[in-house]
Design a protein around this nucleic acid. Structure first.
Lengths: 113, 113
DNA sequence: TTGACATATTCCGATATGGGAATATAATTC
DNA sequence: GAATTATATTCCCATATCGGAATATGTCAA
């Protein structure tokens, strides 16, 4: 048996750095394929291929707008990773402290907005 | 170019389900190779190979004890993934709420222990 | 219809994989 | 030293990869 397909689950899809870059870019909102390709300094077909993988595992959503395809982040798809990784960081009290700090920051920011 | 090596970074190392299983088992504390192999229902060499990968990316630590090698979890190694994934879940207010709830649970549990 | 533009798909090649099997290395016991 | 046990390494193979290049599909405008 070889390595599992990149489309088999979110963990494999996200193992590729370029795909993480794409997700990072999509934090800023909807983006077209060419737009993403330019930002990544990658040929258009490569961008399309990566987006296909991300779509298959449910990390992005596509909207058709004329001849363009606008991709959006679907961060709910990251839940398996989030749950898995926090099940580890929960173990250490350090993490509790970091989390306390983190939540305080959030509250402050929330109040300010 | 082919896919990146599993030892290239933590994301790739953790993309393999068997290796996530190993990390899960190590939550319970130190374990020998044969012990892990039995729990995973895998031949010993496969266990050794996976452990090698996990060691190379800094997710486990080995201690020599006679002819045994006892492996321990090193969850600090998961920080890159933790940081990356939370940078996304932070975006949604839903996550804030879940985190609020989560922290309350923690406080209760802390008090109880 | 024709041409221009945006995106997706297919074929290729070099490469890394993960499991199996066999073997090597190392420590313990007799 | 020889046998036993625990672990690591090597070789093999089927498979999936990612990027490049070429091509196909789809949309718009004149």
């Amino acid at each position: 048996m070889a390595r599992a397909a990149t489309t088999s689950d979110v963990f494999n899809a996200v193992a590729e750095p370029r795909r993480r870059q794409i997700l990072n870019l999509l934090k800023g909102g909807e983006r077209s394929v060419n737009d993403l390709a330019r930002s990544l300094r990658v040929r258009q077909p490569q961008a399309s291929k990566h987006l296909r993988v991300l779509k298959e595992v449910g990390l992005v959503h596509v909207r058709e707008s004329g001849q363009q395809r606008l991709y959006t982040l679907q961060d709910e798809g990251l839940k398996p990773i989030h749950d898995w990784v926090t099940s580890f960081t929960q173990l250490r009290s350090e993490s509790f402290d970091r989390l306390d700090q983190y939540l305080q920051d959030l509250k402050v920011r929330k109040r300010g907005s």
